[in-house]
Structures are given as structure tokens and as C-alpha cells.
């Protein structure tokens, strides 16, 4: 009786070993046709050198410029399963969201990978998740290592300096300075601001993106305000919006940053896309906060 159990256990162990050995010997192919459903995924895929395999991107993807010619598959909140299916992808990257696209793609037999989104550590997690799913894990580790080195250089450039009070605005009512949505703790811009020698004036709030009033802007007295509230569709459009935004702020003379010339209207989408351009964003912030030019 016991001998029969031992024989059965041995047979199972042998099968498991053979299966794993066979699995290991199979070459891990890089997917030939990849679909991205968000700007951060697209930027990560291109940074991993997989740009030529991307066959579809989200409506909001604009960087790198090569994506302009690619088919659009909806937004990261609501990717269109039918459009994705027509592209015959080998792998589709999606964020967790309030939609049933995962189930729809599963029904169609399309392979998907769900990736993280939001915080600064999430940028690195996303890179690892994408590179692992696309079978280029080594490239992912190299990219993570490069980005960490870049952020360390920014950190070093502001080391020893007193952190400056910073307010980052990511949304407001068009053409006004009302209904202001700012960056609180936990968000990816908060993390980058800390590295660049900034002290987020809303670090003590409990919300990731709190709505604040102009009274709060005045009373928090930030040294620097970064306004990402309006993003242009093109460089010329962005420049026009930047001028309008700066004009709106000029009238707010009770705000410390306005008096000190510390308001920066941003027209670069890198500020709102948590992806591989984080070092670029950190460098810009360090320049605005401390006037340094990190390598």
C-alpha cells in the first residue's frame, strides 16, 4: 500500500520535473504585435525598444511622435475591444479600471497583461510588469536602473538645500483659477517633487488629488507653483495656453509664488504621464525650485 503511494508520488514528481524542464527549454518569444491602452504604457514600450512592435495605442497617446500614425483603440478608462481585436495583437496591456475589457478580450482569446498605475514606485513596477510580460525582463531592469541613476543625480544636485514649498496644480475650470485640483501625497508628481528638492504644501492632506480654493493657495504660501491645468494639443497650442495661464496667475498678487515670479505653466505631457520621462520631469522641477541643472 505504502509502496504504491511512494511510486505514485515519484511518478507525479517526475512529470512535474519534465514539464518544468520542457517549459524552460522553450524560447520565450517577444510578442510581435502589441497594443497599448494608455500613454504611460506606450512610453514604457518605446523606452524598452519595443516601439516597432506596437500596433495600436490609446486616444490620448502622443509621445513619442511615431504613435501619431498608429491606430487608436480608445482611452485607458474604456478601451474598445472590437478595435483591439481587429489589430490581431499577441499581447494587450491594460490598466485596472471600471470596465470589462479584460473579460471581453479573454472571450476573444486575446492575451492581456494588467499593469499598475499612479505612484512613483508604480512607474518602476509598471516597467517591470511590462518587460516581464513582453519577455524582455533584462531590458526592463536596465531601464529601471537607468531611471534610478537619473533620479539619484537630481537628488544629489539639490542635496543640502532647504526644500522649497511647492504647489502642483493638475486641473482647474478652463479660463479661470477656480475649482482647482492639486497634487496631494501618494501621487507620482508628489514623489518626483520630493526628489527635486520640493516640499509639497499639500503633503498633510489625506487625498491624492484634493480640490482646493484660492484662499488655500494664498494661505499655504508656496514658493513655486507648477500649473499643469491646461495641456495643449500641439506645441503652438501649448504655448498659447501657457501664456493664458501665466496671465491668469499674474492678477493673483496675494500669492507668494506670483510675487516672486515662481509660477510655471507647464505644457509638457511628461508631467501627467507617469512613465519613463520621470527623470526629465525631476530635472525641470529641480531647475524651477533651486535653479540647478542636474546632469
Amino acid at each position: 500500500m505504502i509502496a504504491r503511494h511512494v511510486r505514485r508520488a515519484f511518478a507525479i514528481a517526475l512529470l512535474v520535473f519534465l514539464a518544468s524542464a520542457t517549459g524552460r527549454s522553450q524560447p520565450q518569444e517577444i510578442p510581435a504585435r502589441i497594443v497599448s491602452t494608455s500613454p504611460s504604457i506606450t512610453e514604457t514600450l518605446f523606452a524598452l525598444g519595443l516601439g516597432d512592435r506596437v500596433v495600436g495605442v490609446s486616444t490620448y497617446c502622443r509621445y513619442p511622435p511615431a504613435v501619431a500614425a498608429l491606430p487608436k483603440v480608445g482611452t485607458f478608462l474604456k478601451p474598445d475591444a472590437e478595435t483591439i481585436a481587429r489589430l490581431k495583437p499577441d499581447l494587450v496591456f491594460v490598466h485596472k479600471g471600471p470596465n470589462n475589457v479584460l473579460a471581453q478580450l479573454g472571450t476573444l482569446g486575446i492575451k492581456t497583461a494588467v499593469v499598475d498605475r499612479g505612484s512613483l514606485p508604480g512607474v518602476f513596477t509598471t516597467i517591470r510588469e511590462i518587460s516581464t510580460a513582453a519577455n524582455v525582463a533584462d531590458k526592463g531592469e536596465r531601464l529601471v536602473s537607468d531611471l534610478n541613476a537619473g533620479l539619484d543625480r537630481v537628488r544629489a544636485s539639490v542635496a543640502g538645500r532647504t526644500p522649497r514649498k511647492l504647489l502642483i496644480i493638475v486641473g482647474r475650470r478652463t479660463g479661470t483659477l477656480t475649482d482647482v485640483i492639486a497634487v496631494g501625497p501618494g501621487s507620482y508628481l508628489h514623489g518626483i517633487a520630493t526628489i527635486a528638492g520640493g516640499s509639497n504644501v499639500l503633503a498633510s492632506t489625506t487625498l491624492e488629488y484634493p480640490r482646493i480654493s484660492m484662499e488655500t493657495v494664498i494661505s499655504l504660501a508656496p514658493d513655486v507653483i507648477v500649473d499643469v491645468g491646461e495641456m495643449g494639443e500641439s506645441p503652438a497650442d501649448s504655448d498659447r495656453r501657457r501664456q493664458i495661464t501665466e496671465g491668469l496667475w499674474r492678477s493673483q498678487t496675494l500669492v507668494q509664488a506670483v510675487r516672486d515670479g515662481g509660477v510655471h505653466a507647464v505644457h509638457d505631457e511628461a508631467f501627467v504621464v507617469p512613465g519613463p520621462r520621470i527623470v526629465e520631469v525631476a530635472r525641470t522641477m529641480a531647475r524651477w525650485l533651486h535653479g540647478v541643472e542636474p546632469r
Partner: peptide, 15 residues
């Protein structure tokens, strides 16, 4: 676009 979509969503909440 993304920026306008965000602004519209916020406006529709009211305040």
C-alpha cells in the same frame, strides 16, 4: 483630448 476631458468631468460635478 485628455486635458479637456478632465476639465469637462470636473465641471459636470459642479461646485
Amino acid at each position: 483630448g485628455m486635458s479637456q476631458s478632465f476639465a469637462i468631468s470636473r465641471w459636470l460635478i459642479g461646485g
